[in-house]
Amino acid sequence: MTINSQSYFPELLKQYEQELLTDWLNNQLSTATRRTGLLKEAELREQSRQLMNSLRNAVQHGSLTDTNTPEWLPVRELLANISNTRAQQGFNPAETATFVLSLKKPLLTRLRKELEKQPDLLAEDIWTTNLLLDQLGLYTVEVYQKSREDVIARQQQELLELSTPVVQLWENILALPLIGTLDSARTQVVMENLLQKIVDTGASIAIIDITGVPTVDTLVAQHLLKTVAAARLMGADCIISGIRPQIAQTIVHLGVDLSAVTTKATLAAAFAIALQRTGATFTRANK
């Protein structure tokens, strides 16, 4: 028997590709972890066939121990693709990795049958197969993890954008209702949004409403003051409104100096003074 670079593994894949694929598929289809609702059988067959195919090509020329070589690129791409779609379809990491790892059983069974007479070579090849499939399995999990992290990062970004609307209350008057804790990253977004809106609308007064901010500590206060200072530099005055009694107490206890900013207890009071400053007057219509 001719043996390619001391291992029978590449030869095995070449000779028994079809049989291995059938065994593997039967194996996958019969396991309890299979989720018929998420993945159609035809799709699974196609994925398995593609992986088998590219795996066979890779082992003919590529290294059997290192899957980072260029020969393995098609396999890695294919796996990344499969892993990504599975992450989106709602598979868990174990199920995703099992797709690759379940190939072990048919491979090892076939190896044992073929190399019955050569125990040394058999042991060697079992080890190689194990290593190789473990590497590929780990890679699948890695890609899975990455695609999930991307989803989380995107959602964080969306949350950031959603949570900082700037609304125009009146000609030259903007309001910025803040909801949730203010950290540095959010302050940055809030500031940028507010300043851009000031430029767009030419507003001269901005009301920052902090009714929805649960706690105001020194850091949050500093962030607020920064926003006020930046708006002032652009030529717009800021009014801070929606200060709850507890917040007023904490601000004073912490020694935060808000005397440079106009503060109001409610958004309504802030709006009234903003209208006054822009020169608008309002009266109750007599019936």
């Binding site: 430029v199 930046a230 708006a231």
Partner: peptide, 28 residues
């Protein structure tokens, strides 16, 4: 009166700790 400061410039100055307290500003 300093007018027409860009948002990015305003943010930079505030981050640098220069909020220019003595300067009057306007939008345009």
């Amino acid at each position: 009166v300093v007018v027409g400061m860009q948002p990015a410039v305003a943010i930079t100055l505030v981050e640098l700790g220069l909020s220019l307290p003595g300067v009057r500003t306007a939008l345009n």
